[in-house]
Simulated assay, not measured.
Amino acid sequence: MTLPQDIPSSAEDYMDSQTHSNRPISSILIIIAMQTEALPLVEKFQLSEDHNSVFPKEVPWVRYHGMYKDLQINLIWPGKDSALGVDSVGTISASLVTYASIQALQPDLIINAGTAGGFKAKGASIGDVFLVSECAFHDRRIPIPVFDLYGVGLKQALKTPNLLAGLDLKVGKLSTGDSLDMSVQDEASIIANDATVKDMEGAAVAYVADMFKVPAIFVKAVTDIVDGEKPTAEEFLQNLATVSAALDEAVTQVIHFISGKCIHEL
């Protein structure tokens, strides 16, 4: 991987700059799992695809980049699976992309944006957009003391009280697993996580972001009601395009708000 020239020369220098700097945010890394979710933002911010990739040539990951006001935006989509041609969704792709993107691009802030299932019992409706307060896994069950906590992997999102006050977004907890459907065991874990929304990437992004102490926020738009009457896959596909537009608008508002601000001002 090649590194941009204007980043600190070592990981320690980078972490020090993140911890102690009061400078305005200048670099945002947006991680989005699906092309349908990503392309509206690519068009909105007139981002260009990077054909001289900062990533190894073997991976399908796609980087779009550009400037918006004073912000360098890097949007990373994990691309299509090379064998099956579908979006590379799930925690493995999400964690690998997050790790490689932090190393190559060293952002000030990560935004993990995407669609999610919502729970009507927790107040979620189709098209609602949530700013996530914390992330956890629901399919890493390790019933051994302390390992059980590791399996849940609870991570806090960056606290953004001013962002919440300025935008019309709901707040909820996110639970992540590698299946679109929900087994009985998953349901019990999701309830234990007190989750309002569920996805297939968020907690994996949070795990890597926390490892490198990069602030991260999570914006999730509801495509399907998990505890509703319609089959999840059918409802997800039915609403994906419409809800992706709502996600696009919410992320646009978030980026507008971030421009010119420091992390502690969010």
Rank of each mutant, 00 (worst) to 15 (best):
Glu37Val: 05
Ile111Gly: 05
Tyr68Glu: 02
Pro56Glu: 12
Ser88Arg: 05
Glu134Gln: 14
Ile126Tyr: 08
Ser48Thr: 12
Trp77Tyr: 13
Pro145Trp: 00
Asp16Lys: 12
Gly79Asp: 02
Phe147Lys: 00
Trp61Asn: 06
Ser95Arg: 01
His65Trp: 15
Pro24Asn: 06
Asp108Lys: 02
Lys80Gly: 00
Ile126Lys: 01
Gln103Ser: 06
His20Glu: 05
Leu105Arg: 00
Trp77Thr: 03
Ala124Tyr: 09
Lys122Val: 12
Cys135Trp: 01
Leu96Phe: 12
Glu49Ala: 09
Ser88Phe: 15
Glu134Gly: 13
Ser95Ala: 06
Asp128Tyr: 07
Cys135Arg: 04
Pro60Leu: 12
Lys120Trp: 07
Gln18Lys: 14
Arg140Thr: 01
Lys69Ala: 11
Gly90Val: 02
Ser26Phe: 08
Val132Lys: 07
Gln106Arg: 15
Gly117Pro: 06
Glu37Lys: 08
Phe130Gln: 03
Ser9His: 10
Ile32Lys: 08
Lys69His: 11
Ile76His: 03
Ser26His: 11
Gln72Phe: 12
Gln46Lys: 12
Ala11Val: 08
Glu43Thr: 12
Trp77Met: 08
Pro40Ser: 09
Gln103Arg: 06
Pro24Gly: 03
Ser26Gln: 00
Glu43Tyr: 15
Ser27Pro: 06
Ala121Trp: 04
Gly127Val: 12
Val86His: 10
Leu39Trp: 14
Pro145Gly: 02
Gly66Asn: 06
Glu37Thr: 03
Ser9Asn: 14
Val97Ile: 13
Ser9Trp: 03
Val97Asn: 02
Val54Leu: 08
Asp128Phe: 04
Ser27Ala: 08
Tyr64Thr: 03
Glu58Asp: 07
Ile73Ser: 01
Pro145Asn: 02
Pro145Ala: 00
Lys69Glu: 06
Pro107Lys: 01
Ala38His: 11
Val89Ser: 04
Ile32Ser: 10
Lys122Tyr: 14
Gly123Ala: 06
Pro60Ile: 12
Thr115Gln: 07
Lys44Asp: 11
Ala33Pro: 08
Gly79Asn: 08
Ser9Thr: 01
Arg140His: 03
Leu29Thr: 09
Asn22Gly: 10
Ile111Asp: 03
Val146Glu: 13
Phe130Gly: 01
Asn74Trp: 00
Gln18Asp: 01
Gln18Val: 11
Ser133Trp: 02
Ser10Tyr: 06
Ala11Gly: 13
Ser95Ile: 01
Lys44Ala: 12
Arg141His: 13
Ala136Ser: 15
Gly127Gln: 05
Ser48His: 15
Ser48Arg: 15
